[in-house]
Design a protein around this nucleic acid. Structure first.
Lengths: 191, 191
DNA sequence: ATAGATATTGAACATGTGTACAATAAAAAT
DNA sequence: ATTTTTATTGTACACATGTTCAATATCTAT
């Protein structure tokens, strides 16, 4: 039992119209009325499927994030947990963000709701959990939760910085920075 | 040359009305019209000072963040950079967030724009810069930028996790988790 | 191909948004 | 105390929001 064709057509029209509008103006300035006019969809119909413009955009983002998941699943030589492993994973994320730079510029915009950030956070977090979860046998699940969120958001912190630098830092440099950071952190306790 | 008394009165009314409304309904559902009715301020007057309800809330948050800055400036025994130093700073942040839990619950809400997160991020980042900047002489300023944002957002990752746990984790436990995490990170390269 | 199910439409309504402008009130400056 | 400056008000307007409902169009199931 698949989805009604009319619904698919409606959603397609809205998605298509949104993409076209995003080339002209920022997401936050696009109104439901405007989007529906461009998509030739009755405004009432919009409310049958969405509550706000953000939900249309979020469907896009979910496809994009799916692409990140797929690229993450790509097999590569996985030994036990070690630093190279983590770096390899993170490079994939950098490549992904670069590939969809236009979207991530929107996601990291000040005016945009946190929901998109959390979508990215949860995705990267699931990778991080996979990486860390196998290798640390912590007594309390809560403690592991904090570790995973700590590491995940640290990476997103680099993405925020990347965003603020206008995505001008090369992926190679970004990776070098990450290696340096991990190296510095590993010496903290020795100081 | 200080601010016109009428402006102060207007802003005070709006702030007061917003606080009262926040006890009844979420920030995202409060309209400008509603806020102005409660504050006995003409809606046109609102637009002379603000563009959206968020800006009124942001003025609150700026006061709150100021409180964090002050608590951070509190003198304590500062040796050279070492892990205890960092931990002491972070505990202050945990206490601060706990103190203003009601506000941070709003700030970490999915529907709320990133601007509040960035306000917190930039504040904590300035602390982190102070802590790290003195102790690392990195050639490239950019590299230091990434390190600082990495470390800053890692801490905010713990706050996100705290938020998701309904702020039920005690500050003591939170600090224990942080110590464990830093300890784990320092052993990464040895694996 | 037809019947039944349901998505879409258009119209209407109360309310919110963002802006403009002259009239007024309240502040600052003298 | 009076003048000057400026913040606030009330009104108006075009457009957006969120919801309702009967009429219609389009899809699914048979």
């Amino acid at each position: 039992m698949k989805q009604d064709l009319r619904i698919i057509k409606t959603k397609d029209s809205l998605r298509h119209a949104l993409l076209a509008l995003l080339k002209q103006k920022p997401l936050e300035t696009i109104t439901i009325a405007e989007l529906c006019r461009d998509a030739n969809i009755n405004r009432g119909t919009f409310y049958l499927h969405y509550k706000e413009v953000h939900e249309v955009f979020k469907e896009y983002l979910e496809v994009i994030v799916e692409d990140l998941k797929i690229s993450y699943e790509e097999p590569y030589y996985k030994t036990n947990y070690h630093i190279q492993h983590l770096e390899a994973d993170m490079i994939k994320i950098f490549h992904h963000v670069k590939k969809y730079k236009d979207f991530y510029q929107i996601i990291f915009d000040e005016r945009i709701p946190m929901m998109y950030y959390y979508l990215l956070f949860d995705t990267v977090r699931s990778f991080m959990k996979e990486s860390l979860g196998q290798h640390f046998e912590l007594d309390h699940g809560v403690q592991l939760d904090y570790l995973i969120s700590y590491q995940t958001n640290a990476i997103l912190g680099m993405l925020i910085e990347w965003h603020r630098h206008g995505y001008e830092t090369s992926i190679h440099d970004l990776n070098q920075h990450l290696i340096t950071i991990l190296s510095i952190n590993s010496h903290f306790r020795k100081m």
